[in-house]
Design a protein around this nucleic acid. Sequence first.
DNA 1: CTGTTGGTTCGATGACTGTCGAAGCAGCCT
DNA 2: AGGCTGCTTCGACAGTCATCGAACCAACAG
Lengths: 119, 119
Amino acid sequence: MSILESTPQEREVTCCGLATTPVTEADAVRLAPALKALGDPVRLRMASMIAAQPELCVCEIAPAFDLSSGTISHHLKLLREAGLVGSERRGTYVYYWIEHAALEVLGTLLSVDQGAAQG
Amino acid sequence: MSILESTPQEREVTCCGLATTPVTEADAVRLAPALKALGDPVRLRMASMIAAQPELCVCEIAPAFDLSSGTISHHLKLLREAGLVGSERRGTYVYYWIEHAALEVLGTLLSVDQGAAQG
DNA sequence: CTGTTGGTTCGATGACTGTCGAAGCAGCCT
DNA sequence: AGGCTGCTTCGACAGTCATCGAACCAACAG
């Protein structure tokens, strides 16, 4: 059950945003982990760095943070488990890329709904 | 320093999404707490219920969850502190409403950027 | 003033999280 | 094979979090 597997109910929600139809418990359980993963300043920046490039190796990500390599790996793992990024080892380096589809699900969920919202 | 106070840098970010320009550390620190607040299934549903109505009293929110009133209050407080909802007591009841502007900041942050994203 | 109902705050507790440093693994060199 | 570099995993630890039940405060109805 990943963030990308949508039920009909969830499709409606992610079609028109959180304000249109109350998110069901099942959808909340599936969507919340991705928001939680982005709810840490380190991971939000990591996701943003990765999203701004086609892909990025850990050796390019790590220097931006004053953290041990173990901690860097830990955060990247959480982003991966949340379905927000993918990774692949190619030779010496491990590359990370953003899963745009997952990001889009969240963007739609939080997008301002033209019908229900009123500034 | 709330989610709604934007620096020039942050305006650029929240204009075109997380993938356009890497989020700065300061912006990440300011934006992450709101995502964190929504990163819990209970609070995501609460925010969604509140967002789907002009306003909602606690007595209408609480029955949707199998939680003690103390825990309900705790979650609503976190949403309030994250700047995502506002609240006001009117007579017997306390009413909560969504802060659409804060939601919009997040929606824009996570929205798919036409320029940088590619599926 | 007293009881009742709606919410918040408090204290305690078990679970989870962010962090480090050390150990481990993978792929290179030579 | 032996060593080096890049990254992940492991074990430990302090800090945070979700939850409950109890105590508390606010408004109202008798």
